[in-house]
């Protein structure tokens, strides 16, 4: 598990203090918090709420509304399978299923060893390469079910 170190809270606190105004800045702050911590556990949400003077309920409401924000840490290698329409019609679903099968995970979660996490997302805009899979920063195009094991092997 990603540690919630004091330095990280300090960094976030400094960012919040540097904002010219706190009005309407909740989402911006959450983006920063996720950048620093990698995810938004409840400790971080409490902290943000206190710092901005808004209720934790509201922070939680916003965090859960937007799919970009996550409350669980990502794996060391984060895999995203694009399920945008262009990728879908070119066969992205079997690719996602294959990742699930090999990694032995059901939905979109992190493997017990913390090595991989899997999610589906909607369109990164590289539709010419559909179906598209990203692992961290790296983009794989025209992925087929058969290529999945090979992709994972690169990160073993």
């Amino acid at each position: 598990m990603e540690e919630l170190s004091q330095e990280k809270f300090q960094e976030l606190g400094q960012f919040i203090d540097s904002l010219p105004s706190k009005k309407g800045e909740l989402i911006r702050v959450l983006h920063k918090a996720q950048e620093i911590f990698g995810y938004l556990p409840k400790e971080v949400q409490y902290f943000v709420g206190r710092k901005l003077g808004v209720s934790t309920a509201k922070v939680y409401g916003v965090v859960t509304f937007y799919s970009y924000f996550t409350m669980s840490p990502k794996g060391k290698n984060h895999i995203s399978v694009c399920l945008g329409t262009a990728c879908y019609v070119r066969g992205a679903e079997p690719v996602l299923d294959e990742f699930r099968k090999i990694l032995n995970i059901q939905g979109t979660e992190t493997t017990p060893d913390g090595k991989f996490s899997l999610c589906s997302l909607r369109c990164i805009g590289a539709c010419g390469l559909a179906p598209v899979v990203t692992v961290g920063e790296k983009v794989y195009g025209r992925v087929t079910k058969e290529m999945v094991a090979g992709i994972l092997a690169e990160y073993k």
Partner: peptide, 22 residues
């Protein structure tokens, strides 16, 4: 920055999102 919600493309939702709300 948006945060991954399709409905925020709708203009009233977009404005609420810019205000830091759902």
């Amino acid at each position: 920055f948006g945060a991954g919600a399709f409905v925020c493309g709708e203009e009233t939702a977009l404005i609420h999102s810019m205000e830091g709300e759902r």
